[in-house]
Each structure stands twice: as C-alpha cells, then as structure tokens.
Nucleic acid binder design. Structure first.
Length: 571
RNA sequence: CGGGGUGUGGCGCAGCCCGGUAGCGCACCUGCUUUGGGAGCAGGGGGUCGCUGGUUCAAAUCCAGUCACCCCGACCA
C-alpha cells in the first residue's frame, strides 16, 4: 500500500472531545471517524485491524465446530414481543415502521432470531448440539454513548449461540466457548481476566465476563491480587462484620425536619452512619418490595433482582407514598405495610438502630429487628467496597474499572420456551432446547489492545492486530537511489507475503517517522542515503524503540524476528 | 432523563463581557530553497460564525427558542 494515496487521516493535534486514551489514539491514528454520537466509520487501517480480530475469532470458533451465519438486522417487532424483550429493552431498541405501518426494530442482539430458526429446523435430539455464530452489526440506542468505540449505538458483535438437549450438553458447550474465548483474547494479546457476573436482561443461570482492566472501562470489578478472585461489583461478595449489636431500647419517634439523606440524619441526630437502616422500596416483577441495607452501604440492584426473580426498578414517589404513608427519606420497615422485607445479612437480629418513622419529618430510634418487624429473609444485598476482605482468601479486595470484552451466558430454556423451540428426545418426549449465548465486542478488542500498549508516541500494535506488518520509509524522495532501494525492499517484502506500507510521500523525515510511531506499525524500515552508502538500512522495532542497521539481504529475516517478538503467546 | 460545558474554514483555537461585517496556528494549493524526528520564504484558495426567530441603522457578539456534540450523574431515602 502506498501511503501517499492511502486514507489514514492522522492528526497532529488531539481532538478536543476525546478523553479515553483509546478514543484519542484511534482518532489521531486515523482508524475511525465519527459520524454521529456513538456511530463511527472504520477507515481502511482501522478496518484492517478489525478484520484481523474477526479472523482470529473465526479460526477459534471453527475449532469448536461453530457454524458462521449472517442474520438480519431489520426485524419485525413481533418476534421480540414473543419473549417480552420489546418491553424489557424499551427505549434502547431502535424502532421504526415500514411503509405499510408495520412495526420493526433494528436488532440489538439475536437470540430471538436464532430461536425462530431453531424452532423450524430442530426436530429431534439427533439434530443437537448446534453452535451457530455471527459477526455483525447490532443496534442499541444507548442513553449515553461514550469513550469512542467503547459504548456505541451501532457496533460489531461476535455472538455465538449453543443449542443442546440438556444442562449437561450446555455445560460442555459453555466450557468449549469459555476455552475458545480465552484463546481468542490471548491471541489478541490482551491481559484479560474472567469474572462472575450478573446475567441482567439476558436471564439464565450462570454467566461470566471477560474483562480488561482500564481507566476507560465502565464496569467495576472487585479483584483479589492474592488468590485471583474477581467478580463484577454487581454480584461480588466480601467478608464483612455484621452491624454491631446495640442496646435494646424503646422504639421512639424523633423529629427530623427536612433530614432525608443518611448523611443528614446521621449528622442531625449525632448517630454514626452505620447505625442507620436504609429502607428502600423497589418495584419487582410481582409488585413492591422492601430492601434494607446499612446506612454505610449501597444496595446492589443486581442482587435484589436475583432474589426477587425478575427485573427491579426504584419505586416511584407516588407508589411509595401510597403504600407507606410517607415520602422517600422517612421510611422504615416497621408499621403496617404488606411488603416483603429483604434485609441485608449484616442485620441479623440487630437492635438499637435508626430509620425513618413512616411519617414525614420524623425518624425512629431504638429499632429492633424481629421485635419491631419480621424480615422475610436475610440475604446479601450490599455492594462490596474497596479494601474489604476477599471472600475466598481473606486478603484485601481492590475495585478496578474494566472494559467488558465478552460475556458468556447459560441461558437455559428462557427463550426456547417463550418461542416454542422444542425437540423430541430419545423417549419421544417434547422438550425445550437448552441454550447458551456468548458475545464479544469486536471494537472493544481494538480499544483494549491500544490502551494496553500505547506509549507517549502513539499506538504499538502487536503482530496479531496490526493493520500492516511493516512500513518502508524512504527518507528523501528526491534521491533516486533511496527511492529505488525503498521500492525494492517494498516489493520484496510484499512478494514474501507481508502486509506492507511504503511512505512514498514527499515529506520531511520527521513527519514520516512521527506518523509511523503514531500509527503503531511494529516494524519501520528507514532507507536513507547515509546508510545506503554502507549498503545498510535501519530497522526500528516500534515496541522496544530499538534500531538496528542491517544488510539489504537480511531485511526479511529481521522483519520476521521483530514480528515474532511481538506475537502474543498462547498459554 | 438531571446537571455542567462546547458549537467560528478539514483540525486546534481567539474574537463575544463592551454590537460596526472575521482572525491565528496547523493542514491544503503554486513556486523556490530544504531533506534523520511534525522545515523556511513568497504568493494563494477555503468560513452566510450550529439552526430559527427577535432587538438594532447594524448581530459571531445582546435576547428567546431549538438542534448537535462532549463530560459527570442517573436508586442512595
């Protein structure tokens, strides 16, 4: 490829509104161009890298007998009504109407489409198992796209779906995918880690995320350096001390005008924050529920979701008042309401606590669990905080921001039952297909690879993802000898099968070198008069910055060595 | 959706407070010089200042509305 006519609009100056380092570098290195919030064009070299990531994915999927297919983006809305996800996804779904007024949407994912194929094609246990996968554009109208390519409204996702006869089959497929994903991320050179996760909208029993630690990430993960325990903050646990047992006191109302927040009440009553009980009301799948956590803790909505068995949202202020007779800020678990009460484990049979009085402007002191009210269940509801102790080994937990690269789910029969995707087993009994789904954010692979390798001069691609293996830089394009020799090297490398760029622009040496550094091509071959006189060219290793001067006939070997050195290892 | 911020040539910005018809750096075009870390000189092209309305003799500048984009938050009682 000739740089003089290649679309790589590199930027000397940093674009103003990019903050994530991968976003800045992708713009500066001319990999992407924004069209609209969360919508990007991939320019040729960016797309080159993306194709490499996709090829790695395809190779590894092939090894576990995955069958690649291509599914529609434009889908009739009814199919999402069958599973209820047209409602669950809500405004995150791009909806439109066709010319006849028929409701459609742009697919945010493809479980429903897969099921619609399976229910027609899979009849017998002999047809199973199946692994179908796709790499294609998905659409989600994210409330807040951010970080360039990290959260987009239109993005490339590799999604794989397994179909099995039973849970055992699902286990096998799940483990195969898990192993394949490990190889994929290793081959991409990413220092990933796996965490236990929250299944969210997807439903299902088990799920794990493949994470990459980065300041630009949106997820928080509790990590233990000592034993390797790692879990998404939504589901992480820790060893925590229970609330200390106070003295038994009479339940007493105290006036707390306009003191709503835990901080306000704690300061006003001069009571430590951990003696307060936060009384939270949520709307669950079967109505309102009450959740109690310590004043110093935060509720994990994911944990509550798992406990009540369906999606939750904070109750609206009207709903709260109608049920409790008081406003948010003055609520307590005692008194007459008929809500199920879930209390955090920290509270088991505790007394002498403070909470709202269910009367605006008042709180109560001396609250005693079991005496003043009876929780339905003591469960883990709180979010883990940094520096708490690891539930596995007891060492200190760290909270790390991370990019979610991939997420694997055991879906079970949620979709197959809803959509009637069934088969006959060996005994002639009709059963729903047992499914798994396994996603990878293709753009996030690039973003993570860039963030993990950059230096002050720009990107440093490894050999697996680089858009070009090497770049030949004739320093002075008005020197015929230099140009001729550079062209020779370019042709020779090209014919040897390398993906090669030549910077044939009539530009100053500094411009070409800075650009080569910024775009991160691993090998730079600098052809100049002064070295040519000695029959040498300079070869620079972008990773180490090391320069060597090699004979013309040795260039290919040296290029190979450098590429070899920056090829990610597979463990 | 709540809060904050920004919209002026391809990119980065100044001008706005205090209205008088748009400027700087980079990039681009032409010529000459230059050629090992984002060159120098000379000449040149490109913007109805996000959009709509209003005030005014006059609006990038003041007022109102609207759109777009960025950042933080989105339950925290």
């Amino acid at each position: 490829m000739r740089r003089s006519n290649y679309l790589v609009p590199t930027l000397k100056e940093t674009p103003a509104d990019a903050t994530a380092s991968s976003h800045r570098l992708m713009l500066r290195a001319g990999l992407i161009k924004m069209l609209s919030a969360g919508i990007y064009s991939y320019l040729p070299s960016g797309y080159n890298s993306m194709k490499k990531a996709m090829e790695i994915i395809r190779e590894e999927m092939d090894l576990i007998d995955g069958q690649e297919l291509l599914l529609p983006c434009l889908t009739p809305l009814e199919i999402w009504d069958e599973t209820g996800r047209s409602v669950e996804y809500g405004d995150d779904m791009f909806k439109l109407k066709d010319r006849r007024g028929h409701a459609c949407c742009l697919a945010p994912t493809h479980e429903e489409i897969i099921c619609s194929i399976a229910r027609n094609q899979i009849r017998s246990w002999r047809d199973l198992p199946q692994t179908w996968f796709q790499i294609q554009t998905k659409f989600r109208d994210e409330p807040r796209p951010r970080g360039g390519v990290l959260r987009m409204r239109q993005f490339l996702m590799k999604d794989s779906y397994s179909l099995d006869r039973d849970e055992d089959g699902l286990d096998v497929n799940y483990q195969k995918h898990r192993a394949a994903y490990q190889r994929i991320f290793q081959r991409c050179g990413l220092d990933y880690f796996i965490v236990g996760a929250y299944s969210g909208l997807m439903g299902g029993s088990a799920s794990e995320e493949f994470m990459y630690e980065s300041q630009s990430g949106e997820d928080e993960v509790a990590r233990c350096e000592a034993c390797g325990y790692a879990a998404n903050i939504e589901v992480a646990t820790s060893n925590v001390d229970p609330v200390s047992d106070g003295d038994s006191m009479t339940l007493t109302e105290v006036e707390t005008p306009n003191q709503r927040t835990v901080e306000e009440v704690s300061a006003y009553l001069k009571i430590p924050i951990n003696r307060l009980v936060k009384t939270l009301i949520y709307m669950g799948p079967t109505g309102l529920v009450m959740a109690l956590v310590s004043g110093e803790d935060e509720l994990s909505e994911a944990k509550l979701t798992a406990i009540v068995g369906g999606p939750v949202r904070p109750a609206l202020s009207d709903e709260v008042f109608q049920c409790m007779g008081a406003d948010i800020g003055f609520l307590g678990p005692h008194g007459d309401h008929n809500l199920p009460i879930y209390a955090d484990l920290k509270f088991q049979e505790k007394k002498g606590l403070v909470t709202g009085a269910n009367r605006n402007g008042y709180h109560v002191t001396g609250l005693e669990f079991e005496r003043d009210f009876q929780p339905d269940e003591y469960v883990d509801l709180r979010k883990v905080k940094a520096d708490e102790s690891c539930p596995v080994c007891g060492k200190i937990l760290r909270i790390a921001r991370s990019i979610e690269l991939g997420h694997i789910f055991k879906l079970g029969t949620k979709y197959s039952e809803a959509m009637g995707a069934k088969f006959l087993d060996e005994n002639g009994i009709e059963k729903p297909i047992v499914m798994g789904s396994y996603g990878i954010g293709v753009e996030r692979i690039l973003a993570a690879a860039i963030e993990g390798s950059e230096d002050e001069n720009g990107i440093r691609w490894n050999s697996a993802l680089t858009p070009f293996d090497a770049i030949v830089i004739p320093l002075n394009t008005s020197d015929i000898k230099v140009v001729k020799q550079a062209e020779n090297i370019y042709n020779e490398l090209y014919l040897s099968g390398f993906e090669i760029m030549i910077d044939d622009r009539d530009a100053r040496p500094g411009v070409k070198m800075k650009d080569a550094d910024l775009t991160g091509i691993p090998v730079h071959i600098v052809v100049s008069q002064r070295n040519l006189d000695k029959d040498l060219v300079e070869v620079k290793n972008r990773w180490t910055g090391e320069r060597s001067y090699v004979k013309l006939e040795e260039v290919i070997d040296v290029v190979e060595d450098i590429l070899e050195a920056c090829t990610p290892e597979i463990k």
